[in-house]
Design a protein around this nucleic acid. Structure first.
Lengths: 121, 121
DNA sequence: GCCATACTTCTAATATCGTAGAAATATGGA
DNA sequence: TCCATATTTCTACGATATTAGAAGTATGGC
């Protein structure tokens, strides 16, 4: 990932309202959520939410599809993985006492990856 | 991690100059780098760098220690792990086809964790 | 066609951030 | 003590982001 793209993604996430939206969509999985439902859950005016969804979209952190009158937003797990990978790239000069715990935290946070993986010291 | 802390960390990283500094320190490992060396490598005036190091410090993404006339900055891998974990928390409703690739990207990016771990389908 | 629903775009006022010059502080060496 | 080095703090200007009111667009049901 190029650094300017990473900065765009981080800027999009560096806002309490947008971060809440993004996490909500990450937790929602592939089905996503309609804009109205997101606005209702967060209690923000629909135009304000729309502006924020637009920022996340431009950063390619979320995608959308129309379904009837609703527009359904979904997290882009690809872009998310790219961003996390960029931050950890070539980390810590081979110091496994740093990297291993770092990777473990990430594995535990993922809802199911941890169950499918095991550490072999 | 509380959301306001995450926003502070993301805001600190959402700036090309600061993101370069942070990645440089992540890649530098536990020894860290003196402020002057960072400024020299990035070609930024020392007072501008100092302001940016201050932002990263306040977000607890980096720490510092004095060594003679130099101040050595180091990445805080703990805070970094907390932030990445926060972003992935409870992701994707148990959809392992999403989580597993996400965790793998992270594991591969870490310089050495990947070598110490194995996927057990 | 008409109306309600679901969202978005336009706009402008307010607030916050980023930058680097100049001056200040801390350390080490002669 | 005096000077050079390393870095920070003070400052103020210009640039950018955030917000929500009002108006506009798209869809579906009758």
């Amino acid at each position: 990932m190029e650094i300017k793209i990473a900065v765009t993604a981080l800027s999009a996430l560096a806002h309490e309202g947008r971060l809440e939206v993004f996490r909500m969509l990450v937790q929602a999985g592939g089905d996503g959520l309609p804009a109205g439902e997101i606005a209702k859950r967060l209690g923000v005016p629909p135009n304000t939410l729309s502006a924020n969804l637009n920022v996340l979209s431009h950063a390619a952190l979320i995608g959308s599809r129309r379904e009837g009158r609703s527009i359904i937003y979904t997290a882009s797990y690809d872009r998310m993985a790219g961003l996390l990978g960029f931050l950890m790239e070539d980390c810590c000069q081979g110091a496994s006492e740093i990297c291993v715990p770092l990777a473990e935290v990430v594995n535990r946070a993922a809802c199911c990856a941890a169950e499918n993986k095991a550490v072999q010291s």
